[in-house]
Design a protein around this nucleic acid. Structure first.
Lengths: 362, 362
DNA sequence: TCCGATTTGTTCGTATGTATG
DNA sequence: GCATACATACGAACAAATCGG
């Protein structure tokens, strides 16, 4: 149950944290807030009072209420405090994320850092909440896997506030173009190229590609997919490039594949490039429904070399994601950044892992 | 400055400082103070509110306002500290652990707690290091999955020190008998019983059971295994109870199973009870080597209903582990403990999940 | 320097919701 | 179930500080 004053309080705090209110800037007056939220003065004062006692605001009688300057003093850093790293990922417990996290955790705990985990479920609103939480606390560094990196990000202000507070951060998997932060990614364009090249070299020409395009990984893998076609002189059928976003991930690819499989034999794809193993496993079920054997009737290739690739019924040909090594690298880089060292972006090169889900087309 | 609320405030504070109000003693109620000072309730609340934010008092709805115990470090109280929970598990990124962790994390982050993760790799030495780290920091609570709960624990002293420091902790999956801490477990004896009963009811009589016996879960599941035999009047062959410990988990069960499978046909087991799904998947590979089909030639049953059970080639019959719900429960319980409330141990009841790895013996 | 509009500070009254014992 | 105590919320009034004109 959300109380009115907490709504007002949180709304003001949001504006402080996302940079709408700059340090020492006057915020709306009490009467303005009364109108804005349609509440009594008492409620507004309660909300503001809360933030004043917590140090986010200060009041000057007759003048107004002002945003405090939270750029933290450096002397605070010197006292022996516990050292904390925040790690923001889209998911915590699924897929390859536990492994990435473990890589970072192992490394960081050796340097006496605690790791606190936050997940966004690939949702901007949750990313916002997480960032507010982190900004309200006292982390020494933040490792971020961006949420929907291919879309304009409404939370850029929070990242800028991290910079203002001198809290270093880096991004893995992708990064928001507006920020160009230190980052650790893999060469997804090459990865998409390798997936497709592998199939082209096996003689496939009617290849359908599924790409999640709300993050940059998907965009780049799609680019690699198209480049491979060009390089091999195979014209990519526009209908064979299926894009979807996170919300549709359980539905759109399945529906689209079914549509493609219902076509006459000559138009039917002979191979499928998947955004990642998770999708590949999902599509394997569709193929089973249609009584298509993999790889005899149709080839399929995944991405990430997750546990799904080797544990599923058909062992998937896939592209290797560094997983634990990426976690290591992220930990090392954030430690460097905390020591104010210069760092260079890291790009992992993908590798093809050939298993049983692809075969030569005769 | 002689505002009314400051008079009330200072009067209360005096009584705290001169010992009129002892720590944790209830002070006059708001209505009493209204009469005493002849002021409105709002004014009283303002005075009390001041002292609450400064840590001199605390309020309990429905009960009263109490004098805080300031014997602890004053500076600690005054600063709005970040709230931290440490979570110690044997593993972080493998198997069902990410899901349990996510359950706890979801719940705790809603209450503005950070979660720091530590793993012991089921090794006493690492458990010690982790506990030292936690004791030297400032956690508000600790959720522990014990390391080798069935063996004498060399780190009991650290847990006692947690108690001495008033840091509440609870244990999941099992607990050290010496401590009897608040705990959340599942009924592993019943679980082991259900696994075995399922096979017995399908007509199997030559059942081999594999149990990891350095933690209590394994011991109890084994007990359930034997009880089921007794109840169904089937004599359990002592050679059909294989125990192993964590260090041997990749080797001993495999070797022992191979030995059993090399026996003459009449002595060969017709069904396998596994300590958990992970082992079941490992043993499935052995069965494949021996060209035994599951469930046609031999039945196998797992435990935990992990992703492995539904993603492997043969969908495993298994016993459901609450996973995310256990995480939720652990989070809720630690929050209760932090508020100094009494808690009761929680025992989850196992459920059988029947899939395709077991069949009736004719 | 003073005025007046604005803004925060203090104080009262009242009503209803919710947790505790 | 009931009385008690704290929690939230509305309304109203006047005081005190600030700031531009």
């Amino acid at each position: 149950m959300k109380t009115k004053y907490s709504i007002v309080r949180d709304s003001i705090k949001t504006k402080i944290l996302n940079g709408t209110y700059q340090p020492n800037q006057r915020i709306s007056s009490e009467s303005e807030l009364m109108k804005e939220f349609n509440v009594s003065r008492h409620t507004v004062r309660q909300a503001i009072g809360d933030l004043v006692t917590k140090g986010w605001l200060y009041r000057v009688q007759g003048s107004g209420t002002f945003c405090a300057d939270m750029s933290r003093d450096l002397n605070k850093r010197n006292v022996t405090r516990t050292k904390n790293i925040a790690m923001i990922t889209t998911y915590i417990s699924e897929y390859i994320f536990p492994t990435i996290i473990r890589g970072a955790e192992t490394q960081l705990s050796q340097h006496d850092f605690n790791v606190s985990l936050f997940s966004t479920n690939n949702d901007h609103e949750m990313e916002k909440e997480v960032l507010e939480k982190i900004l309200s606390q006292d982390f020494d560094g933040v490792i971020v896997e961006p949420t929907k990196s291919a879309l304009p990000n409404p939370n850029i202000g929070y990242y800028l506030n991290l910079e203002r507070k001198n809290i270093p951060y880096l991004m893995i998997h992708a990064y928001y173009d507006e920020l160009e932060p230190p980052n650790i990614i893999m060469d997804d364009e090459m990865g998409g190229f390798m997936q497709t090249e592998h199939l082209l070299e096996l003689g496939h020409e009617n290849i359908v590609g599924f790409f999640k395009t709300d993050d940059n990984q998907g965009i780049k893998r799609m680019k690699g997919f198209l480049n491979a076609h060009r390089k091999y002189g195979v014209v990519a059928n526009p209908n064979n490039v299926i894009v979807y976003n996170t919300a549709e991930k359980k539905t759109t690819p399945v529906e689209q594949l079914k549509k493609l499989l219902s076509k006459s034999n000559s138009d039917k794809p002979t191979a499928i490039v998947c955004y990642h193993d998770e999708l590949a496993v999902l599509l394997l079920e569709v193929l089973r429904e249609y009584n298509l054997n993999v790889p005899e009737d149709i080839s399929i290739i995944g991405y990430d070399d997750s546990y799904l690739a080797s544990v599923s019924e058909v062992k998937l040909t896939t592209v290797k994601h560094p997983q634990i090594d990426m976690g290591y690298a992220a930990a090392k880089m954030i430690l460097e950044l905390i020591q104010n060292r210069k760092v260079e972006p890291i790009v992992f090169t993908p590798e093809l892992v050939v298993r049983n889900s692809t075969r030569e087309l005769k």
